[in-house]
């Protein structure tokens, strides 16, 4: 009847958990898009607003503001990769059976989100300082 070794769960528990991981990845992609957009916007706005001053005085200040957001975008890419790995590993497990998740998988996922939050906070504080300084 069933192709898999474990009988099909009538409550579709593994399927629901799999979809929950996919939803989490989709939310992560939304965060990526927002951070990426903010970074690209800062890249295109900054040289235009600071070009007159920066090119005249020769200071590299115009290149500084996107740095925090650039780092944040890099961390976001890393977090996405980590979460994607977790989701893929877990999907394989869930397709094979109904094993409970390894604790370290969830811990890595949580740490990745904490790292992204820290990067976002740093970028916001850095951005606000530069705005005040200019």
């Amino acid at each position: 009847m069933s192709r898999t070794r474990t009988p099909r769960d009538p409550g579709l528990q593994p399927e629901r958990t799999l979809l929950s991981w996919r939803r989490t990845m989709l939310t992560m992609l939304v965060v990526d898009l927002l951070i990426g957009r903010a970074w690209l916007t800062s890249l295109s706005v900054q040289p235009a607003s600071g070009s007159g001053l920066a090119s005249a005085s020769g200071t590299p200040s115009a290149a500084a503001p996107p740095l925090g957001l650039g780092a944040c975008a890099a961390v976001a890419a890393g977090t996405t990769a980590v979460l994607a790995c977790c989701a893929i590993v877990r999907s394989r497990e869930l397709k094979a059976g109904t094993a409970a998740p390894p604790a370290r998988l969830l811990r890595i996922a949580a740490i990745a989100v904490v790292a992204l939050s820290a990067a976002a906070i740093a970028a916001m504080l850095l951005g606000s300082q530069l705005v005040r300084a200019s």
Partner: peptide, 12 residues
């Protein structure tokens, strides 16, 4: 992640 998205959206 949603809170983070909101924070980035408002800030940037």
């Amino acid at each position: 992640l949603a809170l983070l998205a909101g924070a980035v959206a408002i800030d940037q």
